[in-house]
Each structure stands twice: as structure tokens, then as C-alpha cells.
Amino acid sequence: MHRRGVGLAAFDRKQTTKRFEELSNSISQSQVTHLNNQLTQFRTALTHFASTHRDKIKSDPSFRHAFQQMCTSIGVDPLAGPRKGGWWAELLGLGDWQYELGVQIVDVCVSTRERNGGLIEMAELIRMVSKLRGVSGGSITEDDIVQSIKTLEPLGAGYQVVDISGRKMVRSVVKELDDDQTTILGLAQEHGGRVVEDMLIQRRQWSRERARTALENMLLRDGLCWLDDQDEEYGRAYWVTSAMKWEA
């Protein structure tokens, strides 16, 4: 019987393994160094990009949009706060910009909540936020609003963009809109804000009971609409404030 692994050959094999290990170590070492270099380069390039385009990112909505899309495609979150990959946000100052917009959105939503029951149309929100920012703030888009609302998420304030019969609205109350309410809001949009029981019965085939309950809930419980008891046609009409057009 010949035992394998004894003698010079075996010694050589051990040596070879050790060499390979060393080699692999040095290769990964150089790879890490290389990677570090690349990262540094990337960071430099980014710093450069940021310092060159920061103002443009803040002031030009279409550029901002393109930039945000680029970020998404390379898997970087431009809004990551100082605690996660903060240098990115700090570099761009975009975090601040977005938070500032967020604060303005909250401002508008809260100050109009009384008269719209916490539901505001996207276009109206953009108009009022723009007014708040003044001319120097640069124009803002629906996209910016959606992004900013995302940054508000950790606050748990329940800000949400909802789609009501093809129209985007921002909801600032923590309240689920049920299907019936969504239907009513949609109908109100089409009629300048006015909804009556019979509209729901005729157009949506609701029972009178269902129509009345849904409307009365919106009126008394949620404050989403106002009552008009002088309606010429039906005597009692409901006006959804977020679908009405008037200045405070």
C-alpha cells in the first residue's frame, strides 16, 4: 500500500495552495484598491456634476426630472437623508430643496383643510405652493410634489396622492376614502362640486338609502362637503368643497 501525500510532491502541493492564496489575496487587494479608486472618481465626478448643475436642478423642472430618473436607474436615492448615504443629498442640497417643498405642501394642505376637508386637487396645490414660493422659487411640477410627499412619509402624517376619476388629488387627512366616497368625489368633479341624491340614483344605480348615507357621512362626519338647502331643483344639494372653485 502506498500512502499518498507523503514526500516532496505533497510538500509542493501545500506550497502551491499557499501561493495561490497569496496570489488571490493580492488580486482582491488590488481589486478593492481599484474599486476604491473608481468610487473616488465617481464621487469626484458627482461632486463636479452637482456643483455645476445644482442650481439648474433646483430651478429647472425638466432637468430635475431627468436627474431623478437617472438616479433611479443607477439605484441611488437622491433624497437619502444624512443618515443613509447622506453625502449625496448634502452634495446636491437637493434634500433640503425637497424638504422645503414638503413643508410648503404641508402648509397649503393644512391651511386649506378647513374648507376642502383635507382633499386638494393637484393643480390647485401646485398653484398655491407656487404662490407661496414666489417667482424666484422656480416652477414646480406634479412630479416634484409626488417626490416631496414621499419624503413626508416617515412623518406618518398620511399624505397621499389619490386618483379620483382620472384626476390626481392630494389627501392630507388620515382617512380611507371608501368606494362610495370616491364615486361621489368623481361625480362632483364633473359638476362643479354639486351632488344630489338623485344623481347617484340615476347615474350610478344606487339605492336612495345608500346615496343618502354616503352623502350625509361626507357632510356630517368627514366635513368633505357643504350643504345647500336652497337648491332650486332638489331643495337639498351637497357641494364637495375640493371640487369647487373659490378663493378664501
Binding site: E114, R115, R194, G223, W226, Q230, M244, K245, W246
Partner: peptide, 26 residues
């Protein structure tokens, strides 16, 4: 006249107290 003066429900006493407070303020 402010535009709210052209809103029909502005003339109705609102059953929701929070809403009525806004109406009275206006």
C-alpha cells in the same frame, strides 16, 4: 364681493359645527 359669495352653500347654515365655524368666519 369675494368669490365665496357665489357659492350656493355659503348661504346655508351648516349642520357640521366645524364647517359652520368656517362659514361664520367668512
Amino acid at each position: 364681493l369675494p368669490s365665496i359669495h357665489s357659492a350656493p352653500p355659503f348661504f346655508t347654515q351648516q349642520p357640521n359645527p366645524a364647517t359652520e365655524a368656517i362659514v361664520i368666519e367668512q
